[in-house]
Simulated assay, not measured.
Amino acid sequence: MSIKKLFPLAIGLDVRGRTHTGCIVNGVRFHVQRRDELRKSQYCGIVVAGYHENQEIDIYGIIVDILELEYVEENRVLLFKCKWFDLRKKTGMRKDNNFTSICVKRFWYEHDSFVLAT
């Protein structure tokens, strides 16, 4: 990584961050949960690859906030604040052929709720 790219990170964040109710990342639309509640099409669901107890798993959740962090020279980073569904017990997730069912009443990783939108 060049010095030109590291310099804005070294200076730090601009104090004027923004929140959004939706965004498009790499051609995929994402919305926060409160925007999708009364709509037919919903885009607040998210799945990311992660680790739990040293095992790689898919972690499912919903986006509750979209934060845009701004650095100098117009460098921006999008973070999704998510509520992750608890998949630890057998009742947390069930796979039937190509369909995955998730119990949406229990959550986990409440103190590790952010994921980088890439």
Rank of each mutant, 00 (worst) to 15 (best):
K4Q: 09
K4A: 13
K5L: 14
P8W: 01
G12M: 08
L13Y: 14
D14T: 09
V15C: 13
G17C: 13
H20G: 01
H20Y: 10
T21Y: 10
I24C: 08
I24P: 08
G27T: 02
V28R: 10
R29G: 03
R29P: 03
F30Q: 04
F30P: 01
V32G: 00
R34F: 07
R34K: 13
R35K: 10
R35Q: 10
D36V: 04
D36M: 06
E37S: 01
E37D: 07
L38S: 12
Q42S: 11
Q42E: 15
Y43W: 13
C44Y: 01
G45E: 13
G45D: 13
I46R: 01
I46L: 01
G50M: 02
Y51C: 09
H52I: 07
E53S: 06
Q55H: 09
E56T: 03
I57C: 07
D58Q: 11
Y60H: 12
G61S: 15
L67T: 06
L69M: 14
E70I: 11
E73C: 14
R76A: 00
V77H: 00
F80T: 15
C82N: 09
K83I: 14
W84R: 03
T91R: 14
G92W: 05
M93K: 12
K95D: 06
N97M: 15
S101N: 06
I102H: 04
K105H: 15
R106D: 01
F107K: 04
F107A: 01
Y109W: 12
E110A: 04
F114C: 15
L116R: 13
A117I: 02
